[in-house]
Design a protein around this nucleic acid. Structure first.
Lengths: 145, 145
DNA sequence: CTCCATTATTTACCTAGGTAAATAAAATCA
DNA sequence: TGATTTTATTTACCTAGGTAAATAATGGAG
């Protein structure tokens, strides 16, 4: 494993991320949640009620993705959508049940994530974080706007 | 960015991978391809005709995922499915058109990937590879082969 | 005020990934 | 041989992600 091929690097990256997602979703299944839904709940718990646009911009996904995921979460009783003063926008709020379950789910995810980095020292985690930051940013190129 | 939080690490990891996928798919779109389809083509060019099972095991996805993606690729003229001696299995083969386009597409993907690691030195790429290897393997677990 | 541009959200239509269960063919076993 | 188990693929049903275009409401310019 001496000379690194870009292809192998991206291949490994994809494999790992898919594996991790699968595993996380698997564990979250006990709570009736998916990783994407949990990231929204976490966001709402942290910042309080937000518009859909604020959420998808924060999480870096597209608007339709957010619409759909929130619809499922609404159906499953995790969130409610409230009409704002500006009638175009909808404020998203966690339900009482979601707030109650929050701590428990958080403990699960903390544990999973901890297991997944069990082989990395603190120093290695910092390194990994830094390297990921450098990935995909082609020097002077801008992000999406 | 001194003390790394596992959550932030995984968040960044997901964000980056989604960004990279989006970008790669975007570029591959010129060739009428998606990253997942390209990985299959690459695999077939490297190893020659393979059964579906061999492909999904190699790429670490589930069988139904492979069935579907190959169906699209068959429809679009990238591959053909041949009956094997064992009538349960189907051998997948690149079409002539796929073989002809291979080099051109490969040049595109090489270029994209190169751009995406432009900010990483060789040493950093090796580090990243190594760190990714350690990620998700809870202790004694081995790599993919 | 009216018309036009912008903004928030949704709908329609794609790909990719997963699990569970159904087929169909091969392999094994009694 | 006949019955059972395994294996390869598919089908049905789910989530997540994307783009393009449609609504609907707001904001500005004239």
């Amino acid at each position: 494993m001496d000379n690194i091929n870009n292809r192998d690097l991206f291949h490994l990256l994809n494999q790992r991320v898919r594996y991790l997602s699968k595993e996380i979703n698997n564990r979250l299944n006990d709570h009736g949640l998916y990783a994407s839904q949990w990231s929204i709940i976490f966001c709402l718990e942290r910042f309080g009620p937000m518009t859909q646009t604020a959420i998808w911009k924060y999480l870096n996904v597209e608007a339709p993705t957010m619409t759909r995921t929130l619809s499922r979460m609404e159906k499953n009783g995790w969130i409610v959508r409230m009409q704002g003063d500006d009638k175009r926008e909808r404020f998203i709020e966690l339900t009482e049940e979601a707030k109650q379950k929050f701590t428990q789910v958080q403990q699960s995810t903390d544990k999973i994530e901890q297991e997944m980095v069990a082989n990395l020292s603190l120093e290695e985690k910092k390194q990994l974080y830094k390297l990921l930051t450098k990935l995909g940013t082609t020097g002077e190129e801008s992000h999406n706007e």
